[in-house]
Nucleic acid binder design. Structure first.
Length: 268
DNA sequence: AAATTCGTCAACCGCCCACCC
DNA sequence: CGGGTGGGCGGTTGACGAATT
């Protein structure tokens, strides 16, 4: 199958995001949601690839992202999960509220891997596990099972779609090193408490998957939330409140549906 | 003080999978 | 059923600042 490139190479910006671009993207996603990442930049007035927008949003602009300042507990969790799961960064990151897969991956490669090398992991039977337990994606039934049940805590339907005023009212600079609190965000914390706030959390891989299944108990029974990307929890905002938060919504972004004035009451 | 090396991290690339038509 | 599309993921790269020479 021939895939079309994810973006038209001509005329699209690459590289570091400017504050202006961040502002546009945040304003747009906050107002209209991520209805289609590929089309989004066009309407948001961004000369960026949709994937790039998605990545920027997911990793930096999304509310309640933690930056830097890894706690010992977080590092232990990463090491422990990496030991059992391999490079499944998205799953590992899901265990760390506020952390993104990209950041976890970076932290592993820059910091933890070295530490890990000095202290080779020891398996239960006492054998040294010197190799990186890299798991090829989509190679087993278990893998598929994991994938099916793997959804970011931020979209976990077990959490009600709350309006995140506390987080949205204090947008963070894109490249800040702030370690923002996530405690105000139930969509992050509540869904994770059952598995991550637990020092005795079982190393067993199977148990980890069970935990995911447990967490996603009503995943299939609530297709709306599961299919609503991050908007279900992060972005359900009163349009009026949104205007208040983003007074710079001055018409440079376009309503994707052509009926901007009818958006009120629209569920993203 | 300048040059070089090293470490960190933001972002891109390409692949895979699910979904839709 | 098969092709096309979009989203998600992991690997990798390159820019940039810090540390070292």
């Amino acid at each position: 199958m021939v895939r079309t490139p994810c973006c038209d190479k001509s005329g699209l910006r690459k590289g570091t995001w400017t504050p202006e671009e961040d502002r546009k993207l945040k304003a747009y996603v906050t107002r209209y949601g991520c209805w289609n990442w590929r089309q989004l930049p066009k309407y948001a007035g961004l000369a960026r690839c949709g994937k790039s927008c998605r990545l920027r949003w997911m990793n930096y602009l999304r509310p309640n992202i933690k930056r830097g300042n890894y706690t010992e507990e977080e590092e232990e969790t990463i090491i422990r999960l990496h030991e059992s799961l391999g490079n499944r960064w998205s799953i590992i990151a899901a265990e760390l509220p506020g952390r993104t897969d990209n950041e976890v991956k970076n932290h592993w490669h820059t910091t933890l891997k070295k530490r890990f090398k000095h202290k080779p992991p020891v398996t239960k039977d006492g054998k040294e596990n010197s190799q990186d337990p890299v798991v090829k994606r989509g190679t087993s039934a278990e893998e598929k099972e994991t994938k099916l049940n793997n959804h970011d805590p931020l979209i976990n339907p077990t959490s009600p779609p709350l309006i995140l005023e506390s987080s949205m009212s204090s947008p963070q600079p894109a490249s800040s090193d702030q370690n923002s609190s996530i405690t105000a965000d139930n969509t992050v914390v509540s869904s994770k408490d059952s598995v991550s706030d637990n020092n005795n959390y079982n190393n067993n891989k199977a148990n980890l998957f069970e935990a995911y299944e447990a967490n996603s108990g009503n995943f299939w029974t609530e297709p709306f939330f599961s299919d609503s990307c991050y908007m279900s929890s992060d972005m359900q905002m009163d349009p009026a409140g949104c205007e208040a938060e983003f007074p710079f919504l001055d018409g440079e972004i376009l309503c994707p549906f052509g009926f901007d004035d009818q958006l009120e009451g629209f569920n993203y």
